[in-house]
Computed example of a mutant assay.
Amino acid sequence: MASDDKPEIVDRGVKDKGDDDDKGGFMDKVKDFIHDVGEKIEETIGFGKPTADVTTIHIPCINLEKADIVVDVLIKNPNPVPIPLVDIDYLIESDGRKLLSGLIPDAGTIHAHGEETVKIPVTLIYDDIKSTYNDIEPGSIIPYRLKVDLIVDVPVFGRLTLPLEKTGEIPIPYKPDIDLEKIRFERFSWEETVAILHLRLENMNDFDLGLNGLEYEVWLSDMSIGGAELEKSTTIGKKGISYVDIPISFRPKDFGSALWDMIRGKGTGYTMKGHINVDTPFGPMKLPISKEGGTTRLKKDDDDDDEEGVTVTPES
């Protein structure tokens, strides 16, 4: 065989390491390209992460048994499509101790390029709190921390958790103490007598009570002398005392010896029940007032105080 006819030998041995580097570099470029395309699509279509904020905390109802609380959360959706609000997970604690927690599933949808105020209603039952934490006293104000996790499902980003937190204070209300200290007769008749009841109201709470209404009924010696609604504006400071005069009319001839005991200066037993309507830093409240087994007396001319006495004289 002639030398010109010898076959050409080609080396097909192991590839250079540089070949792998070239391949890796190529794959990285592909990934970067896909990422860049994704960002361009995101910028073009306008996808973005939603935002949320606690705007207001309302206390629409508060009394001696419970406090209804509504948390307003404003959620903004910058995306061109609606996003579902999958779950709302919330926790209320005080000084690191859990007061209440819960989960609200399938809480709705946030419209495209829109914003929604989502309301989270919760109820604090005071008996549950006081039975769990003995050191929480009626009439006190306790700090609270509200934690909310909003779970949303967003295209491109997937499922996201938006954590929120808010702090504040909430009261543990206590009913005021009431005493009927004296009764002054303005006009006396056996058929109808008009009297003024001198009430002493003591605020047992660590916050002011703005008294703006009073509903009451009074019994003397187990016999009702009636009641009424009274609009009265005054402020009873925290841990303070206020005095209120309220008019009442009744028929003395229906009372027998109880009225004569008062006229002769003796005390007589009484019971008083009702409600007071008050404004507080936490919203309006309707608090019960009650006094049973108390003793009161007629205000007479010779009583040793600064208030002028009233002489009781039957009408002709």
Rank of each mutant, 00 (worst) to 15 (best):
M1Y: 09
D5T: 15
P7C: 05
P7K: 13
D11H: 12
R12P: 05
K15L: 05
K17M: 06
D19F: 14
D22S: 05
D22E: 03
K23C: 00
G24D: 04
G25V: 02
D28S: 04
D28A: 10
E39D: 15
T44I: 12
A52M: 06
T55R: 13
I59D: 05
N63W: 08
E65A: 13
K66G: 01
V71A: 04
D72Q: 11
I75E: 06
N77S: 03
P78I: 08
P78R: 09
V81P: 02
P82C: 04
P84F: 12
L85K: 09
I92H: 00
S94T: 11
S101P: 02
L103H: 06
I104S: 02
D106T: 12
H111M: 05
G114F: 10
V118P: 02
P121K: 11
V122D: 01
I129G: 03
S131H: 02
N134R: 10
N134C: 04
P138F: 13
I142T: 07
I142P: 01
K147H: 14
K147R: 15
I151H: 07
D153F: 04
G158V: 00
R159Q: 08
T161V: 13
E165Y: 00
K166W: 02
E169S: 14
I172L: 05
P173A: 05
Y174G: 09
Y174C: 13
K175A: 04
P176H: 14
E181L: 11
S189I: 03
W190T: 04
I196D: 03
L197T: 01
L201N: 01
N203S: 11
N203E: 03
L209M: 09
G210Q: 10
L211T: 01
E215S: 15
Y216R: 04
Y216E: 03
E217K: 10
D222P: 03
L230Y: 07
E231T: 10
K232Y: 13
T234R: 15
T234N: 12
K238P: 00
K239F: 13
Y243V: 12
V244F: 15
D245P: 08
I246K: 06
P247E: 10
S249N: 08
P252Y: 08
D261K: 06
G265F: 07
G267K: 13
Y270D: 04
Y270P: 06
M272G: 03
K273H: 05
D279N: 15
G283M: 07
K286P: 00
I289G: 04
K291Q: 05
G293F: 00
T295E: 10
T295R: 11
D301I: 14
D301P: 01
D305M: 03
G309H: 01
V310N: 01
V312T: 01
S316W: 00
